[in-house]
Simulated scan of single mutants.
Amino acid sequence: MQLTTAAPQRRNAVRRDADGMAVASFVLGLVGLLVFNIFLGPIAIVLASVALHRNTTRRGRAYLGLGLGIADLLVLAAFMSADNTMSWSLGG
């Protein structure tokens, strides 16, 4: 009988992918606070959720990405309600 090491290797690959998703969600959420928050916010939320579902070892970073993604959408909503448009700008 031959023992295979495919299962542990697959598990490590899934965990490594989940760790990458956690870091990506954090970075996208952070950048989304400044630019393209209507796109980067939801992407950060989805990546963080998938990373948490796949049991990432970087849970803190995934939670930060989730929070920043939600903050992106809140910032967008606040700026949109301030000038009643579908976009926001820092200039007057």
Rank of each mutant, 00 (worst) to 15 (best):
77 A>F: 12
51 A>S: 15
83 D>C: 00
44 A>F: 04
53 H>Y: 15
68 L>Y: 04
84 N>S: 13
44 A>M: 03
62 A>L: 05
45 I>L: 14
15 R>Y: 06
51 A>Q: 06
61 R>L: 11
66 L>P: 01
12 N>G: 09
60 G>A: 08
51 A>T: 03
43 I>E: 04
38 I>Q: 14
76 L>F: 14
74 L>H: 06
49 S>P: 01
71 A>I: 07
1 M>Y: 11
9 Q>W: 07
31 V>W: 06
16 R>M: 14
29 G>L: 05
45 I>F: 12
73 L>E: 09
57 T>P: 05
11 R>E: 15
82 A>S: 15
33 L>Y: 01
4 T>I: 08
73 L>S: 09
41 G>C: 01
46 V>D: 05
88 W>R: 06
5 T>I: 09
52 L>D: 07
20 G>S: 12
14 V>N: 09
9 Q>N: 13
77 A>M: 09
5 T>H: 14
41 G>Q: 04
7 A>C: 03
34 L>Q: 12
15 R>V: 13
8 P>R: 08
40 L>A: 01
17 D>M: 14
35 V>Q: 02
13 A>K: 13
73 L>N: 10
11 R>V: 09
13 A>W: 12
61 R>T: 12
28 L>P: 03
60 G>Y: 03
22 A>N: 05
8 P>A: 07
60 G>Q: 06
10 R>P: 02
87 S>Y: 15
3 L>T: 11
23 V>N: 04
33 L>F: 04
73 L>F: 10
6 A>E: 15
92 G>A: 11
21 M>F: 14
28 L>I: 03
66 L>D: 01
66 L>K: 02
37 N>D: 08
24 A>I: 03
10 R>N: 13
24 A>L: 11
91 G>I: 13
71 A>E: 02
78 A>L: 13
12 N>C: 03
36 F>S: 02
6 A>P: 01
15 R>T: 14
53 H>D: 10
15 R>I: 11
90 L>F: 14
29 G>V: 01
29 G>A: 03
62 A>K: 02
42 P>K: 01
51 A>K: 06
88 W>Q: 05
41 G>R: 03
28 L>G: 00
4 T>E: 14
45 I>Y: 08
8 P>I: 08
31 V>E: 00
71 A>G: 06
64 L>Y: 02
74 L>M: 14
20 G>L: 09
42 P>R: 00
